[in-house]
Design a protein around this nucleic acid. Structure first.
Lengths: 215, 215
DNA sequence: AACACTTCTTGACCATCGTCAAGAAAAATA
DNA sequence: TATTTTTCTTGACGATGGTCAAGAAGTGTT
């Protein structure tokens, strides 16, 4: 049995049980507590719905072509969303601690995904399978609220990204990212950030020196 | 009393009542029926929650600085989302028949919106005020599903737009738009489309001639 | 410490894009 | 229909960005 086998409720008897790590779970609970409160029993149901998995640096979390049937929650590390486009890959988004990851269209409409997700540092995820979520939501319907809020927040974030592409120059987007997500520059290779900004690595390098000279 | 006054439940006694147009409502019902079925009583509740308003060409539907407390549904015409950025405006999205419009962050978190919405052709909207939605969802909880689906679909659309900015050139984005939303070029001024593609009107004009020559 | 590998920077050169300005075409208005 | 206004196109030119290539800096591995 390979290490880090994903726990699958359907094949429960055969899979390696990955005990949840209470520290990791607490991080999810913190996020949930921002919006609703849960009884000990409800928390127990949550525990039963989730598994945990660790990914090494550069390890792939999910690859295109598959139908997504899991939602991930980042408890540690950083992952990126990238698209494989004729040979080279393009980073479209970063996910850090406290964020949910889901290949939305694939998960919702059961079609093959075009997204890839990869750990860019050692990363730990909580994993909810679709079937586990169905069971969980029957037991604890008010968690629907969390799903709605997570979706709304991601939508708001995406709309801001689009607004930045439409209204701002590459240099402005770089400065914005520096102000709002500065830690990313310490955590992920610059060429990933470049493609997230919609430019080449060389251009990002030149923008950086240009900005430094202005100071 | 100006024509087309927005019906406001709070000032019901003073506002002009805009009777709903059953043809327009049917369009909304068609959209809803794709996902759930409603009893005659539930449809009646929906009718009571909604008002209708017409906008002339170029009329502003919603402007930045206000806190959004309404969701719109386009039954006829076309609207654009634009941002006002030091003097000139930048179009970030188009909404046509069957789509919901909502300044998400403002509506969700009660903060002033930075978005503007404008009719680019004579446009007719169904309007749901926040308070009317609250009442409606208490009466017909299963409409929550529609809210969730509409949010999910908009998220998926936004993710595709971001993917196109990150992975494609301006010319490729133009060709994509032509294939998927070609009618837009017959309906809205080209400089709106240009800024939606993240380029200047002149560049779009040149891309068009370049593409024509390739054929 | 030595080596390999990845990442980052820099230069050269060319392609693309933005801006300004002028005029043509199309649409709205009188 | 005539006139005004808006939209679209085209040219010129400068700014920005992409690509290729070389080398430097930094990481990780043995």
């Amino acid at each position: 049995m390979p290490k880090n086998t994903i726990f699958n409720p359907v094949t429960r008897l055969y899979a390696t049980w990955q005990p949840y790590n209470s520290t990791k779970m607490e991080q999810l609970l913190e996020t949930i507590k921002l919006y609703i409160s849960l009884s000990p029993q409800e928390i127990q149901s949550l525990y039963e719905a989730v598994q945990q998995k660790s990914f090494g640096k550069n390890e792939l979390i999910f690859t295109e072509g598959k139908v997504a049937d899991e939602i991930y929650f980042v408890t540690k590390g950083c992952a990126r969303l990238f698209y494989e486009v004729n040979g080279n890959d393009k980073t479209a988004f970063f996910y850090t601690e406290g964020q949910f990851i889901c290949a939305g269209e694939s998960y919702t409409y059961n079609i093959p995904a075009i997204e890839n997700y990869q750990a860019v540092e050692p990363t730990e995820l909580l994993i909810f399978t679709k079937s586990a979520i169905e069971i969980l939501l029957q037991k604890v319907p008010k968690l629907e609220v969390i799903a709605r809020i997570a979706t709304e927040n991601e939508l708001i974030t995406c709309q801001k990204v689009i607004a930045s592409f439409v209204t701002k120059s590459a240099e402005e987007r770089y400065l914005d990212l520096l102000n709002t997500q500065g830690q990313l520059f310490q955590r992920v290779p610059q060429h990933y950030i470049a493609s997230f900004l919609g430019i080449s690595p060389e251009t990002l390098s030149r923008i950086k020196t240009r900005v430094l000279q202005k100071e």
